[in-house]
Computed example of a mutant assay.
Amino acid sequence: MATKVAVVTGSNKGVGFGIVRALCKNFKGDVILTARNPELGQAAVQELGKEGLHPKFHQLDITDHASIIALRDFLQNTYQGIDVLVNNAGIAYKAASTAPFSEQAEVSLKTNYFATLDACEVLFPLLRPHARVSNVSSMVSQFALAKCSDAWKARFVSTDITMDELSDIMNKFIQATKNGTHKEEGFPETAYGVSKIGVTVMSLIQQREMDKKGADDIVINACCPGYVDTDMTSHKGKLTIDEGAETPVFLAMLPPGVKEPRGQFVREKAVADWKM
């Protein structure tokens, strides 16, 4: 029988590193730590090795399609499948960033939404029965949803929105920021927030698509790790990376046949509202 395997994207530091640490302690199988920079990834593996934990490293840059394909081929050849996938890789501009808003929108959505979706589309065919997928979103997705026009809110919370429609809306937001019309068009003034609306809604759609295909107990959820003390929050967060890892790992370890959370948005290990 093939060894079980858990994969965590963007995991050489921050919440991703905490997720790998927790999975090494709780998941019965191999844990793959990934990073864009192999040196940083190997250093993270060595750091966990000092704690008696033994993740394996594989290079992954989710914005590079060839890099995702290389990871897929490695997983297929080595494990013949995936049991846990935690999509944690993402970026956030600092509040003090002087980059134009249109640039922040394009880069944030390219990484946080489109690259995460690409990783899912490449890796999902490897998901085994009873696989668990934890897409790391943010409570900022809820805040951003609240600031959308009623028309956009209605689409983002609808149960019939498709992935193509969602991607089209994400592209409309990018274009609107370039035109300087995003506010008039009903979008909020937060590139990160819209990118994480994308991740949350993507996760809900993915569960519906899996169920429609008759997948065997594959469970996908979006989650907020909380406000964590990391580079991404300029170390203003109150939670440790291990505390931030709790909800993503809770979802990664959901038992067979679980009815809830399933295709939902989760905060502090509990289902959170995703509604107008």
Rank of each mutant, 00 (worst) to 15 (best):
V266N: 11
I161W: 05
F27H: 10
F143S: 07
A105M: 06
T98I: 13
S97Y: 01
Y93K: 03
G244V: 10
T190V: 02
C148R: 09
C223Y: 08
I32M: 11
N88Y: 02
R128H: 04
I218C: 10
T181S: 15
D61M: 05
A154G: 09
D273Y: 04
Q46A: 10
V258D: 13
Q206E: 13
F57A: 04
R267I: 07
V86Y: 00
A35F: 10
L254D: 15
V228C: 11
V258Q: 14
L251I: 14
G226W: 02
G29S: 06
D30C: 02
Q42Y: 07
G180D: 13
K56D: 03
T240C: 06
F143V: 12
N12L: 06
L123T: 08
L109I: 15
D217F: 13
V8L: 05
D217A: 10
R72D: 02
L126E: 11
N87T: 02
K50T: 15
N221G: 07
E39D: 14
N87M: 12
T200N: 06
L48R: 01
S158C: 08
F173V: 03
R208S: 10
V194H: 01
F265N: 12
K183Y: 08
V249A: 13
K178Q: 11
Q42N: 11
I68C: 14
T9C: 06
P261S: 15
M232S: 03
K50C: 06
F187M: 03
R208D: 13
V107Y: 04
A176Q: 08
I32E: 14
D231R: 01
A252I: 13
A6H: 03
C224W: 02
A191H: 04
N37W: 08
R21P: 06
D64K: 08
M202R: 00
H130W: 08
D211Y: 09
